[in-house]
Simulated scan of single mutants.
Amino acid sequence: MPMFAFLAAAAIAAQAVPADQAEPRTVTVTGRSTLDNSSALRAARALKAGEYMWAPQTAPAGPILMVVNLETQRAVVYRNGLPIAITTVSSGKKGHETPTGIFTVLQKEKVHHSNLYNDAPMPFMQRLTWDGVALHAGALPGHAASHGCIRLPAKFAETLYGATPLGMTVVVTKREALPAVVPAGDVIAAAAKGGAQAAPGTRDFWDPARAPTGPVSVVVSTTDRALFVIRGGRIIGRASVGVGRQIDHPYLYSLQSADSAGARRWTRIALPGQTLDEDMQLGDIDMTPATRAAIESVLVPGATVVVTPDALTDVGSLKDFVVGK
């Protein structure tokens, strides 16, 4: 299985569409007004280069996730765990391959030009890495043809841009299978058994004032025995953790909702290649009660927890958050 790259964690941001920016009516190639995983795969295979389907009524609100498949040159957009859109794409050509992994949107610009490739236009740009990989509108010849970016149909790029805030998670894979969303326990509570193994480290800190608002992600490295908390694109905390067992691939969790009593509903996104019953069991990750309290103070629906085997030791800022590239 290819090494996953993590960029600023995988923050599945809560959906919020302004009232004056309504989503378009469905563009359909299947005759269906709603989607599920099986119909999404069928529709994806039926699309021709430049075509897409947008069915927002499948899930009108909730956290958003986009899955890009480099082999099929297709992408599926999920909201609240349900597929709401399918599109053709054009990814990086030979010598400029788009990296696989889990990324988060770091920057958005309606009008943007490449600073690497002859000032080429990149309309409705959503940046995935600081070294040149982004989602944007562009030519779709039916095969991989870009310099590493993920090109989208022009109208789809505009629609996606309007529907997603900073922090949307983008999974880039070479497997055609779509992720499955399954219920999970309270992963933060499970990861705080009492702090017996998680002694504070000299590099630990907590400074939520660095980013008072924004999408929240918690990234745990089992190799480094450390976690990072990211909000609004900035690292606001680091803490040492205990690790009961090592892993060889990442696990991704999303906070779907929280009630006034503090009860939280989490889901796990079973990524392509993972089974539905496979779970990290975050009881294997141990954090101090103070760390748990700090994390819980910033959790909002749409927050994510990513557990990765990748080493993050030298991470000092968001621009350093590229692992296994």
Rank of each mutant, 00 (worst) to 15 (best):
V170P: 14
R127T: 03
G162N: 13
R268N: 04
V300T: 13
K325N: 12
A5T: 15
A303V: 14
V216L: 06
D20V: 03
T98G: 08
R127G: 09
W54M: 09
E51Q: 05
T104V: 05
M66G: 05
A209S: 07
G50V: 07
T72F: 15
Y253M: 09
I86L: 01
R238G: 05
T304A: 14
D277R: 06
N37L: 02
V170Y: 10
T173D: 06
P215G: 01
V171K: 09
S317W: 09
S221P: 00
G50E: 04
V323A: 15
N80E: 13
H249P: 02
G316F: 02
A239G: 09
A191P: 12
S39D: 06
P18V: 11
F156G: 01
Y161W: 13
A137E: 06
P123W: 01
V29T: 06
W54V: 01
K155D: 12
T100W: 04
K110G: 13
R32S: 02
D279W: 04
P121Y: 01
L271R: 04
E109L: 05
N115L: 12
T58Q: 00
D36N: 13
D320K: 05
G148S: 11
M280K: 15
L312I: 11
R42T: 13
G262N: 00
R234G: 05
R234V: 02
D204W: 06
T223D: 06
T30E: 02
G242W: 03
L271T: 04
V187T: 10
K155W: 05
A180F: 02
T98E: 08
D284T: 15
A154F: 07
G162M: 07
T164A: 13
D277I: 14
A14I: 14
T267H: 15
